[in-house]
């Protein structure tokens, strides 16, 4: 599958090898999904999955995602647990607001500037925030790394500061789980110096 590219520059061949590795990984995931969709693993499904997955990768190419960090299992577990906890408590909260008689919730749109502006971090943070009830992404400014978030049930300025902090905390947990060392440092120093927040 490597096709030995004999390029003079080692950096370029390494990048090409990395691209091949990413494609192979994507193919493996697609084959897995294909088998799960059919409901059982068999040689026929394996071959079919390779064919369909290969066609998908060939005809719908995606821009390469730069993944500079590494996976940290403990931080990933922390993120998953906190996410599940927030999901449960926030779901109960929104459900309670929904059934409380005669209550009109007020909202607000807050702009939150993320500290790590890579596409991956932006997408992961936006996904995680979007999935938790009470916060809804309205607009994403990719160049500036700003998320515009609609927050439900705002009662005062402290609630706004609170939700800002919560979003930045989500970003911090994500960077801790998958970010590189540089990104990690940026997230951690920032959280200390940014005390008297807006």
């Amino acid at each position: 599958m490597t096709g030995d590219p004999v390029t003079p520059e080692p950096a370029r061949s390494r990048r090409r090898a990395g691209r091949w590795r990413d494609q192979l990984r994507a193919l493996a995931w697609l084959v897995l999904i294909w088998n799960l969709l059919w409901g059982d693993f068999s040689w026929g499904n394996l071959v079919g999955g390779v064919l369909v997955g290969g066609a998908v990768l060939l005809f719908f190419p995606l821009p390469p995602v730069t993944f500079a960090g590494r996976l940290r299992p403990r931080a990933l577990l922390v993120f998953a647990l906190r996410f599940a906890g927030e999901l449960a408590s926030a779901s109960a909260n929104v459900a309670r607001i929904a059934v409380r008689p005669g209550y009109r919730p007020r909202g607000a749109i807050v702009a939150v500037r993320l500290r790590v502006r890579t596409d991956l971090n932006l997408a992961l943070t936006a996904e995680a925030i979007s999935l938790v009830p009470g916060t809804l992404i309205i607009e994403v400014d990719r160049d500036a790394g700003v998320l515009h978030v609609h927050v439900l049930d705002v009662r005062g300025p402290e609630d706004l500061a609170d939700s800002r902090d919560r979003i930045l905390a989500v970003e911090r947990r994500i960077v801790r789980a998958v970010g590189s060392a540089v990104e990690l440092r940026r997230v951690q120093t920032d959280s200390v110096e940014r005390r008297p927040a807006p």
Partner: peptide, 16 residues
């Protein structure tokens, strides 16, 4: 009261 607030209800408790 409005669409944005409704979106919270339509997409979120539904996730869990």
């Amino acid at each position: 009261p409005d669409t944005l607030a409704r979106m919270h209800a339509a997409t979120k408790p539904q996730v869990l």
